[in-house]
Design a protein around this nucleic acid. Sequence first.
DNA 1: GTAAGTGCAAAGGCTTTGCGCACGC
DNA 2: GCGTGCGCAAAGCCTTTGCACTTAC
Lengths: 137, 137
Amino acid sequence: MESFIKLCKSNNLKITPQRSLIYKELVASKDHPNAEIMYKKVKKTFPAISFDTVYRTLLTFSKIGIADILALPGEPKRFDGNKKGHYHFRCIKCDNIIDINDSSNIIKIPDSISQKFDILDSKIIFEGICDKCKKVN
Amino acid sequence: MESFIKLCKSNNLKITPQRSLIYKELVASKDHPNAEIMYKKVKKTFPAISFDTVYRTLLTFSKIGIADILALPGEPKRFDGNKKGHYHFRCIKCDNIIDINDSSNIIKIPDSISQKFDILDSKIIFEGICDKCKKVN
DNA sequence: GTAAGTGCAAAGGCTTTGCGCACGC
DNA sequence: GCGTGCGCAAAGCCTTTGCACTTAC
């Protein structure tokens, strides 16, 4: 929460109740909600908030590095508050997105590529069927 | 081209001039065009074609496995006809998308993950600055 | 002949923007 | 007080859908 305040100040963003709340909800979210779902979440504790504010705030967060945007074909943007380097697994059945933490260094970028390009970020989404859906089948 | 005809037949898709043309343009595309750009390309040799047909056809192709959809935040879907396992590098300056072929097995999925999930596909986009833009700077 | 494809247009959904008022600093 | 943020509404853009006509098979 303190780091949030610092980040806002260093980006000339004011600390508003709406922003603080959205921030808290975002980092607390283990799923990867889209703006619509975030809106419903924050509305519970802040009924007067507007959808636009939520959407705009999430976009702002992604600009200053608090949130990541997950773009998937055919569905609205999802937002991710977990900024530690990690990847995603998306179940094509239940549509949930599960974090995969990079404890084991999944990615090895060959020198031939890292010499040619400056790689700053990597967006990695595995797709398949999750453990729960495997059981249900 | 023959494999295209086979695929269509096995999916009960008719071989229309529009489809054949879009297919040819797609596999010939080294960039990763969106529907708008594809539309302009095919319009040159088939002026009567409609945007809808191009769009619908590209979606159809992605369903039967001819094309891949690349979803990026803040821009229209791009389509990719190169179906051999490969990854993408996107330059955040010039916005081009460059293929990275997996000759060197960039991805190693740990057993702990592959045992839990059935991983069927992986969408991997590296982001950074390409060699051309590095020089310009 | 029949089912699927195409073209046209219109609707749909997500996202973005403009503007006046409110609020943090 | 000044500049930023908020809420409201409307527009924008990409994408999807319905329908009648045409075409591949």
